[in-house]
Amino acid sequence: MNKYLIFTTAILILLGNVNCSKTKKGPAQIQEALNVVEEVPENEISEIEIGKNPADFVPKGYVIFDTIYGDLNKDKIEDCVLIIKGTNKSEIVKDEYRGELDRNRRGIIVLLNKNKGYELAVKNYDCFSSENEEGGVYFAPELGVEITKGKLFVHYAHGRYGYWRYMFRLQNSDLELIGYDASSNHGPTVLTETSINFLTRKKIVNENANPNIDEPEMFEKKETKINKIKLLKLSEIEDFDKLEVSEE
């Protein structure tokens, strides 16, 4: 009987060792398991990054305010830029003279056309003020966005006071500010014209030495070098109304 018990115990111990060898892993096996990277199937990519229609990229709480088409990456295919606007009811106010005004801010979404759908390039949901801001004794600047020769232009028209515009180019996984132009006017008379190239760091100012409205304009050109600065990215601009570049 004692021999039988000893034999049975030995078999159980042997089986236990075999099972342990199957479940326990050595240091090399553990490290190999940690190095395994799980691959995400292509059909699980977020719709925020890739979508069939531009409207797929509009976030909740926003609507499309304007749509602009043009080639931004020089592949001869029209890309799409959406100007979006918030829909927060608390931003709708009543003005004593103008009535009900929607003061929700606006933003921009830049989409690259990939034939089978659109790919998100840049997003900035709240960088523009509403179209119903106060202009004081004059109307507020009017925002316009367009694509020309592969560049994105953000243009502000201010009637008799002139205009200013920002030029962006697609590079470094964003749209970077590479140029700025402005015209300061007094009615039909141009007082100063400013042009900045942030790539060459060149600033040109044409100042009217004869600002009298009844006399011909006489411009004096002044060219200077601006300090080397990091190019501004469209996605990082918090508020275009507070963006100052002319004195850089």
Rank of each mutant, 00 (worst) to 15 (best):
M1A: 13
N2M: 11
I6H: 15
I11M: 13
S21F: 05
S21P: 13
K25F: 09
A28F: 15
Q29Y: 03
I30C: 03
V36E: 01
V37T: 12
V37K: 08
V37F: 09
E38V: 00
E42S: 14
E44H: 09
E49W: 15
E49K: 15
G51Y: 09
P54K: 00
P54Y: 08
A55E: 09
G61V: 03
D66K: 13
T87F: 04
T87H: 02
S90G: 05
D95I: 03
E96T: 11
G99I: 05
L101F: 07
R106C: 08
G107E: 03
I109G: 04
L112W: 06
L112N: 06
Y118A: 01
Y118Q: 02
V122N: 10
S129K: 07
G135H: 06
Y138D: 15
P141L: 01
V145T: 08
E146D: 12
V154K: 09
H155F: 05
A157Q: 08
G159E: 03
R160H: 05
Y163G: 06
L170V: 12
L175W: 07
I178V: 03
Y180M: 06
T192V: 03
T192W: 02
E193Q: 15
I196S: 04
T200P: 07
R201V: 01
V205I: 09
A209G: 10
A209P: 02
N210E: 00
E223L: 03
T224P: 14
K228I: 13
I229P: 11
L234K: 10
E238C: 00
V245Q: 04
E248P: 03
